[in-house]
Write a protein that binds this DNA or RNA. Structure first.
Length: 525
DNA sequence: GTGCCTGTTGTGCGC
DNA sequence: AGCGCACAACAGGCA
């Protein structure tokens, strides 16, 4: 084992070689004598089954594929990915000593869990006299600088966010992936040491408590190579890019109507900066759609939620979250499970949840429909419970956007027009009148005539028999009557808004004096 | 404080 | 097809 001075680049998100400034530091840095450090690119994998890590099989597979891809690309450069088993706080002290580490680099992560972890690791590094370098490269903008540009306050609306960043310098340009590494930074040690190999999918799934045989076909393979291929596939179609308007894309097409680049963005297989500048390049001087509905607008939504998420305490919870409406949600395990497993008896809702379970991705508007149904629309179940299910099932489950969007969809923050309720029957019909999407994911209903496919409970018994699917026997009866519950829920939301407002006023202002109370009463008369 | 405007993605109806 | 409107009426931002 060589005892030469080493730099570690720690991959977590940012699973790519292109546009990776902290990785670049690891292979380009030299010690005071002007010698390159020996490079050890690592990924730390928790080898235990932990129930609190809410990731389903599909996302573990995506991660495993991304690791294989990263290892392959690194090997082409003469190094490899060293997968280290353990928890970061447990493994770093040993690595620092064993490898004679002088420099540790990684991409900055703004999530609370990651911050705590990284602080801990920074302390360990300090104790071992290891220099730590972090770079902002997951987001287009440094979230702290956005806050500073807004005089230290959090932009609470998308438009406000856009106006703040438009006053800031353009995002940094993406770096190219290295085609060659400095020969002096390359190590011959451990290149074939199996101890550091990427686990096979079967190994990983078994480790995480799953039966590998249960996994569904892979529609969106992980990794940087696939991310770049997918990006370029969409960038080829200039007209489509220029005309893209998110609200006009269908939630229930049989093939995705949007790019499905979100999983690659979540893991950092694709750089936000590269995506941004490729869009600018493709658009050029042509007429094009604008934020919030355009593709660049979609990148801004990500930045918006990252910024608010980084600056708001308890952003992923209702309690203790200053921006979140306080709503007395019901707990209803049975209804929650029916929703999560696609058995609510509303075919459109069930189709979406089954697609999510099987494929790990559903369209943004489909997420709206099922989220509204779970929370303020129908079941009156907490958005935090929905967030947990999404976190498990979505390939692109991303802490800031998951919490931000759940607050949006439940009208708990950002979006406040709670009286606008999605109909679990009407919404899907707009883009799929004949219900082909439902037939694909809810095959029980495959023989239902178009006129009953969205509301099979209203089909006459004779039609149900003829279609080979009797409601209440072969497919569930609907668990709520939407046209009754949504009206009740609107009044409950209205009350929750009034109560939340009252609590906020009580906290901000001192209690009103008796005279002031009288004044207020008079005003309301 | 007050009033006005705006807000990526509602529904159902009528023209 | 696409628009305007009623439905009942929210918060944030700004003048």
């Amino acid at each position: 084992m060589s005892n030469e001075e080493t730099s570690i680049h720690w991959f977590r998100k940012g699973m790519r070689l292109h546009d990776n400034p902290s990785f670049k530091l690891a292979y380009e840095s030299k010690n005071s004598a002007g010698q390159y450090y020996k490079l050890r690119p690592i990924y730390i994998l928790d080898p235990y089954f932990r129930k609190h890590i809410r990731a389903g099989m599909n996302r573990w597979r995506f991660l495993q594929q991304s690791l294989v891809d990263l290892d392959l690309s690194l090997r082409k450069l003469g190094t490899r990915l060293y997968v280290v088993r353990g928890l970061p706080e447990d493994v770093f002290p040993g690595l620092f000593t064993k490898w004679n580490v002088k420099l540790l680099t990684f991409e900055l992560d703004t999530e609370p869990y990651a911050r705590k972890r990284d602080e801990h690791v920074e302390n360990l590094a300090r104790q071992h006299k290891v220099k730590v370098e972090q770079k902002v490269s997951h987001t287009l903008y440094n979230t702290e600088l956005v806050l500073r540009a807004n005089k230290g306050s959090v932009p609470m609306t998308y438009q406000k966010f856009v106006s703040v960043v438009s006053s800031m310098p353009e995002p940094r340009r993406p770096l190219s992936a290295p085609t060659i590494l400095p020969a002096e930074c390359l190590l011959n040690d451990d290149l074939e040491n199996e101890e550091y190999d990427v686990p096979t999918l079967d190994e990983l799934l078994t480790l995480k408590g799953f039966n590998p045989e249960d996994i569904k076909p892979c529609l969106y393979p992980g990794g940087e190579v696939e991310a770049l291929r997918r990006l370029e596939e969409y960038m080829k179609n200039k007209t489509w890019v220029c005309k893209f308007e998110k609200p006009n894309t269908a939630p229930n097409s049989l093939k995705p109507s949007t790019t499905v680049l979100s999983p690659y963005m979540k893991f950092g297989c694709l750089s936000s900066s590269l995506f941004y500048y490729r869009l600018k390049e493709v658009i050029g001087n042509s007429a094009h759609s604008k934020p919030p509905v355009s593709l660049i607008g979609q990148l801004y939504w990500r930045e918006f939620y990252y910024t608010v998420g980084a600056a708001t305490p308890n952003f992923d919870k209702m309690l203790g979250n200053p921006i979140c409406c306080q709503v007395p949600w019901d707990s209803n395990q049975e209804a929650l499970e029916a929703w999560a497993n696609g058995k609510t008896g509303y075919p459109f809702i069930d189709a979406i949840m089954r697609q999510l379970n099987d494929e790990g991705w559903v369209h943004h508007l489909a997420r709206h429909a099922v989220a509204c149904f779970l929370t303020r629309g129908d079941l009156w179940i907490s958005w935090e419970q929905g967030l947990a299910v999404f976190e498990e099932l979505l390939l692109d489950a991303d802490w800031s956007m998951n919490a931000g969007n759940w607050m949006w969809m439940s009208a708990s923050a950002f979006f406040h027009q709670f009286y606008r309720v999605y109909s679990p029957v009407a919404f899907g019909k707009k883009t799929d009148k004949s219900g082909d999407y439902i037939r694909k994911y809810v095959p029980e209903l495959i023989k239902y005539p178009d006129e009953y496919i969205y509301e099979p409970w209203s089909a006459p018994k004779s039609v149900q028999y003829r279609a080979g699917c009797v409601i209440g026997v072969d497919y569930p009866k609907r668990i709520v009557v939407h046209e009754e519950v949504y009206k009740i829920n609107i009044t409950k939301m209205s009350l929750a808004y009034k109560n939340t407002k009252a609590i906020k006023e009580k906290n901000v202002h001192p209690a009103p004096s008796p005279e002031e109370k009288q004044k207020k009463k008079r005003k309301f008369k």
